[in-house]
């Protein structure tokens, strides 16, 4: 197995672990961290292909994804804080009444 295939396998495993973590964990903050793990898995594959093809545009795209990820977490955490202020729990089951 060459380095590229090895890193793509790692990327897939990180994504799969992140996805399953979002499904099986019971804490909203931990679920948010598993979402970040999924994003890191995808970014790893993007970096590997960028390096493989020598495309500078890929590096810029990774940078933009970093920026959007930082903004995403800056919005997600306050939403979480508001939810907990209302429901007083981090258990996602307590918010099953949310629609949409």
């Amino acid at each position: 197995m060459d380095d590229t295939t090895f890193l793509l396998a790692l990327s897939g495993m990180l994504f799969a672990l992140g996805l399953v973590g979002v499904i099986v964990r019971r804490n909203l903050l931990v679920m948010l961290m598993f979402l970040e793990l999924m994003l890191n898995g995808v970014i790893l594959s993007l970096v590997v292909f960028t390096q493989l093809l020598g495309a500078e545009a890929g590096a810029v795209l990774v940078f933009l994804v970093f920026v959007v990820a930082a903004a995403e977490i800056a919005i997600a955490v306050p939403i979480l804080l508001l939810l907990v202020r209302t429901g007083h729990t981090l258990d996602p089951g307590a918010y099953a009444g949310l629609k949409g």
Partner: peptide
């Protein structure tokens, strides 16, 4: 991102069912 997350963890030290039971029924 992670520093922001750690601030949130420190703000929300909730010790309810989400803390005592790690995994969901899924």
């Amino acid at each position: 991102v992670m520093v922001f997350m750690i601030y949130a963890i420190m703000l929300l030290d909730v010790r309810d069912r989400s803390f005592t039971e790690r995994f969901s029924p899924l």
